[in-house]
Design a protein around this nucleic acid. Structure first.
Lengths: 200, 200
DNA sequence: GTCTATATAAGGATAGAC
DNA sequence: GTCTATCCTTATATAGAC
């Protein structure tokens, strides 16, 4: 087990098994002991693979986002009309958030990070690609509107639905069906298309 | 200092000075020592006013939300048209989030709470009034749409703008002016009114 | 009401054996 | 590569003096 292959394999296992922990409890809510326990190692072994807790966390988040957002950025591109690509993106984004709670929560943790430098580093590394794709789509969709604000609105409409997911259950008018990605996507796209009060 | 008045006064001081701490660092990121230091007491003194850390946190959040959301719920009511009340609410909400970072962050912490029971308790106590008001407004605004989804969308459009605030700075098209409450409110209301691509 | 002192557990991190 | 053992710091919480 002294070879580089095993080293890489264990490293990736640590990263993978840390995702649900950091996703659920956040940086301060997870200890090196917790992670070691989940992986089946002693805390000391973690320090062979990562210099310290913060580096482990950064690698976990960066790795998870690289895996999940490249798919999304792909769904925005293509030769179809801007509207068709918007619908693709909104649907894929909703599907991802509905399926992968850890991804959604890691995203929220990054937005709440108390360490400004760390947040900036992560935000740049993690959001930029996705945001830029939505931004360009927003420019195409409505040249007269502020593309930055519009991109935020598109992302926010989808994200907030799932972000409020657990709290929404106690609010009036809640139905489980509202959590289904296609229902969310339909609502969001419909709202963006026609606005309020003037649809068939 | 043995009288009940002083007791209440110190208690309120603890609650008030805890807001920025819990707002910035979250439940796990704040220690009783931190709070005691901020108030100018020893940690032991805190246990005279609160049974434990969790109770202190719950009281901080509940107290802060009661103070800030009653104003908002007021801005939704009135005799004006549904649209006028929507504009009032969106503007007041944006103003609150822009001004009071701690309130926004406490809200996010509640949505991320890893303790389900605690989250449910807080969510019910803290969101219900505001959500119900927006929900009823949503029913008036567009009877054909799902009022729950619409209420979430209205709240989400405003909230996500500020939630992404610190990360947005590194994204294309960012301008500080986009953080101003009236600019946010204008964008949101305009988007809700006409949707994309069909405005003057 | 607040303090000092302390019990007890848990945290990050390292040294050195294997 | 991973372990055992350990150091040092920090955490929540309590007991009892003042």
């Amino acid at each position: 087990m002294l070879d580089g292959v095993s080293k890489r394999k264990t490293r990736e296992e640590i990263l993978e098994l840390s995702v649900p922990l950091f996703g659920r409890f956040g940086y301060d809510g997870v200890s090196m002991r917790n992670i070691a326990g989940a992986v089946g190692l002693t805390p000391a072994a973690l320090y062979y693979h990562f210099s310290d807790k913060q580096q482990l966390y950064l690698d976990v988040v960066a790795c998870e986002f690289r895996k999940k957002t490249t798919v999304l950025a792909g769904s925005i591109e293509g030769t179809e009309s801007a509207w068709a690509r918007l619908e693709n993106f909104v649907e894929d984004f909703a599907r991802l958030l509905a399926k992968d709670k850890n991804f959604l929560r890691l995203l929220q943790w990054v937005l709440l990070d108390s360490d400004e430098t760390r947040q900036h580093e992560l935000a740049k590394q993690v959001f930029t690609e996705l945001f830029a794709a939505v931004y360009h789509l927003a420019e195409e969709l409505d040249a007269d509107r502020d593309a930055h604000q519009l991109a935020i609105s598109i992302i926010g409409l989808v994200m907030f639905t799932y972000q409020a997911g657990t709290a929404r259950q106690f609010m009036p008018g809640y139905r489980t069906q509202q959590n289904q990605p296609d229902a969310v996507a339909r609502h969001v796209c419909d709202l963006l298309r026609t606005g309020l009060g003037s649809h068939p």
